[in-house]
């Protein structure tokens, strides 16, 4: 299954990646080979097999509704590139 350049551009846009023409070509080939590899799974008969929701046979893992103190603000913001008024400062979107 070969990916078109257009499909690569679409995926790149969803991932907010800016690719030049050479990169688009490279990724089209690489992604296509990954998809081809995964496509082998289609050779297996999967009729009547429930889609797997989780890899472990584990269900209903809960915590009780109890509050614990969070992380101090200085610590949680320590890695943020820009901080102002105790908040993350980011480029405006709208």
């Amino acid at each position: 299954m070969a990916l078109t350049i257009k499909e690569v551009e679409y995926v790149a846009q969803l991932a907010r990646l800016q690719l030049n023409e050479d990169e688009k070509q490279i990724f089209a080939e690489q992604l296509s080979s990954i998809l081809e590899y995964v496509e082998k799974l289609n050779e297996l008969p999967t009729d009547g097999v429930e889609p797997l929701a989780h890899i472990l046979p584990v269900y209903n893992v809960f915590r009780a509704d109890e509050i614990r103190p969070g992380t101090p603000r200085e610590e949680i913001l320590a890695n943020a590139p820009l901080v102002e008024e105790g908040q993350y400062k980011v480029p405006k979107i709208m």
Binding site: V61, F62, R63, A64, D65, G70, T71, R73, I76, L77, E85, G86, Q87, Y88
Partner: peptide
């Protein structure tokens, strides 16, 4: 006050695991 009720889970730090609140 902003960012005073936060932890690595709800701040999206890498490697953190969510656990569902039964309530």
């Amino acid at each position: 006050e902003p960012n005073t009720q936060v932890c690595p889970v709800c701040s999206g730090f890498p490697g953190m695991l969510p656990v569902l609140n039964e309530k």
